[in-house]
Amino acid sequence: MANTTTEGPLTLRRDAWWVAPLLTVIVLTAFGIYATWRALEGRYYEVGPYLSPFYSPLILVDWWKFSPAILILWAPLGFRVTCYYYRKAYYRSFFWSPPACAVRGLKSRQGKYTGETRFPYILQNVHRYFFYAATVVLAFLWYDAFKAFFFEDGFGVGVGSIVLLVNAALLTMYSVSCHSCRHLVGGKLDIFSSCPTRYRLWRWVSALNEHHMFWAWISLFGVALADLYVRLVATGTIIDVRLI
């Protein structure tokens, strides 16, 4: 089409549009490095009634010679990688596609861009299956959080109990606010009035979904901090304080 432009400067914006993608790169890279190191470390994941969320459910089998975290982390990792919010975050910050609104990506592939219609990006469409898998893992995290209140001497509340409980709650909010969950509970319906229960569920999930970005970040920090807490207690760096 004549007289449109895909050339010229990167952007005509003069505000600090690069701050958000830069922060995203820093935080996601830091999390990626920490999570990879912890997943491969294969120790300091369990102490007392506490189990690190990176290792839950704990699968210890003879035939697996590597860290047990690898057996289960694919589910939450896949859930986050294919998440509609994280897609926005990493498409912008890592792939510059585009880096910010009205800022041109480094490569303007005139007529060649295919988005999520070709391999590997077409695999983003399996997000709901990672949602199902992550929900199973989440059930185990709730079990771990419950278990964290039962010490050798019986019921009690440690800081770790609260950390694991908050972590499970934050991950639940992130999972329930998921766009695929919203679709499955009722979004796919055209006539809500014929399914009032699903309509109510859809409205509830929609309200959470408006803050999906918030839940995505806060639950990411939550799971990293919960793992860090368990590791610090397991290595003896800090002592878990019993509140009750």
């Binding site: 509609y84 897609r87 926005k88 498409y91 912008r92 596609s97 585009p98 910010a100 609104c101 009205a102 861009y113 295919t114 988005g115 999520e116 219609t117 990006y121 077409i122």
Partner: peptide, 15 residues
């Protein structure tokens, strides 16, 4: 309509 082309970077919503 090519809905698969959208990589949901949400600039449309922002503006």
């Amino acid at each position: 309509a090519g809905v698969g082309f959208c990589n949901i970077t949400k600039c449309c919503t922002e503006v």
